[in-house]
Design a protein around this nucleic acid. Sequence first.
DNA 1: TCGCTATATGAGAATAATCGCATACTCTCA
DNA 2: TGAGAGTATGCGATTATTCTCATATAGCGA
Lengths: 99, 99
Amino acid sequence: MQTKQNLDYKQQARLLRALANETRLKIIDALSRGEMHVGALAEATGAEQSSVSKHLAVLRAVGVVDDERRGNEVYYRLLTPCVVEFFSCALRVIKERQA
Amino acid sequence: MQTKQNLDYKQQARLLRALANETRLKIIDALSRGEMHVGALAEATGAEQSSVSKHLAVLRAVGVVDDERRGNEVYYRLLTPCVVEFFSCALRVIKERQA
DNA sequence: TCGCTATATGAGAATAATCGCATACTCTCA
DNA sequence: TGAGAGTATGCGATTATTCTCATATAGCGA
């Protein structure tokens, strides 16, 4: 029998994989300061539009972001701000490693 | 010029990639309850010894775990307990997504 | 030293992630 | 309806990740 625990590991890994990309981290960081549309995110991250669009799809698939079309543009926002807390831990780990 | 920010994204992504694997999550979870040697981790995770050993190398490379040999066995322990905090957020994201 | 146990490492195959380019889709406005 | 802007998607090439099996290394006790 597949335990509930195992399912959690699978889903957690899936979420972490979604976060484990430099461009997606930049996107999340940008969105942590407020919603943005795709073009602005492309500019903010320095990545191609189609690439940003794909990264956003990954983040949306795991429920980290949300999108809303307004006219021609599609605005994205961070659904789960606690994701940003990840990074304070990440920075601590990185700092400790350097020490 | 490569900014400090960009380096941070790169390192954060590296750390997240190290965490983004089901078996490694199981390992971290097991270690959060106390140090364990490789064989015990293999049994706890249900993965092969050589596989566990490689996963441990990945975690060690990013500074999340530490190892110490005692006789024939090598004991691993979690260096950065805050990593476990990741998961409360992860679970929240997953729960919110299901809602 | 020899045999045994525990762990680590290497090679190769299979799978997954990423990127760039081209193109399709969607909405607005004239 | 047609043009143009903004966004999404499909495809192929490249690179990264993961697994398994075989082998190497390290320490133990006889």
